[in-house]
């Protein structure tokens, strides 16, 4: 299967997992994007913030990690699932 644009791949990943934190998503996408410059915590956080603001995903839990950083847990929304119909055929 051809690699998806990263934001679309994140949505796909969220649809195939009940909930996920940014660190879990970074681990999950390592094989596809790990050697690219865009594979960074900042980039993932930006994608997730935009996807949350437009309602594709929602924040279901917040916590502080051991380093004292905010740790958000997200899940895909029903609205986000409607966007999956635009996935390339091989990904459906």
């Amino acid at each position: 299967m051809a690699t998806l644009p990263m934001r679309f791949r994140l949505l796909y990943q969220m649809a195939n997992t009940k909930t996920a934190t940014v660190h879990e998503l970074i681990d999950a996408l390592n094989n596809d994007y790990g050697n690219e410059g865009q594979y960074s915590l900042k980039s993932f956080n930006n994608h997730l913030a935009s996807m949350r603001a437009v309602g594709l995903i929602e924040e279901v839990e917040v916590d502080m990690d051991t380093q004292g950083n905010l740790l958000e847990t997200f899940s895909i929304t029903d609205f986000g699932r409607t966007r999956l119909k635009h996935l390339p055929r091989a990904w459906r």
């Binding site: 279901v60 839990e61 502080m64 958000e72 899940s75």
Partner: peptide, 22 residues
């Protein structure tokens, strides 16, 4: 869904505040 905060009471409050700020 309503956002759930986990952890101790203090960290819960901090996490909610940081989430709102973000």
């Amino acid at each position: 869904a309503e956002v759930q905060a986990v952890g101790t009471s203090a960290s819960r409050q901090t996490a909610l505040e940081l989430s709102g700020k973000r």
